[in-house]
């Protein structure tokens, strides 16, 4: 993919020459960049009804592994780099960017998703472990435009500020209710302490979970 020369004029003479010299050199070398750009352009679009392939094809690297899994109720088939975390698979390959990376070390909870109904930190879960299992992310929680009671409760109690920890908080909170750990505020606090909110929305989060727990029981 050679940037066109005119476009680089705007950058001024020094940068223009720098960019063009480099891109020409690489292209002449026939480096991986050029080869891969072609591969990417030729990626087939998934046919309706078929398990959808990853939105972005797998780049050339590492050990490959084909997986079949279900994400938010839809079958997904993809070839992955065996090292790929479930978090990076969701975000970088499936474009499901609602699940957030806050640490990549299992310390913050921002990447919490449900795997067969259990909450897991997707950064410490290999994508390969999703084989044959059901993944639910924040994008799969609402019923179309109708919010899940937990989502509504988060709005009602302003249980969020920047919103970055929020998808993980909501996934953990729904699991917390299902696990039966909402007996008291203290119990909620304890079982929600794997999800850090640096903005400090904890008071609202606890209130939202108390509220939604009552409504979820009624469903």
């Amino acid at each position: 993919m050679l940037p066109d020369d005119d476009a680089h004029d705007a950058l001024g003479p020094e940068m223009r020459d720098r960019c063009l010299a480099i891109t020409r050199r690489d292209t002449l070398k026939g480096g991986t960049a050029g080869a891969l750009a072609l591969a990417l352009a030729g990626a087939p679009a998934p046919a309706a009804g078929e398990p959808s392939a990853a939105a972005h094809p797998m780049p050339v690297n590492g050990e490959r592994l084909p997986i079949r899994t279900s994400v938010n109720g839809r079958p997904v088939a993809a070839e992955i780099d065996t090292r790929t975390s479930l978090l990076d698979f969701l975000r970088e390959r499936l474009d499901l960017t609602g699940t957030k990376k806050g640490c990549d070390h299992g310390q913050c909870g921002a990447c919490t998703v449900h795997l067969d109904g259990q909450r897991v930190v997707s950064c410490l879960t290999l994508a390969a472990k999703a084989e044959g299992r059901a993944v639910v992310t924040i994008e799969g929680v609402s019923d179309g435009d109708t919010l899940h009671p937990m989502q509504q409760a988060f709005i009602d109690h302003d249980a969020l500020q920047c919103g970055y920890c929020t998808p993980g908080q909501i996934m953990a909170a729904i699991a917390c209710v299902r696990e039966g750990h909402t007996g008291s505020r203290d119990e909620i606090r304890e079982y929600m302490s794997g999800n850090i909110c640096r903005c400090g929305a904890y008071v609202g989060i606890v209130a939202a979970i108390e509220d939604a727990a009552a409504r979820m029981e009624r469903i």
């Binding site: 960017t97 709005i155 969020l160």
Partner: peptide, 27 residues
Amino acid sequence: RPRFDARDMVLGRTRYAADRRLAGMLH
């Protein structure tokens, strides 16, 4: 009044910088 962008946030639709996924993107 509820937070202006809360609905998108609880739906996981708010786009932060790292959520930009562009075709042919390098890391």
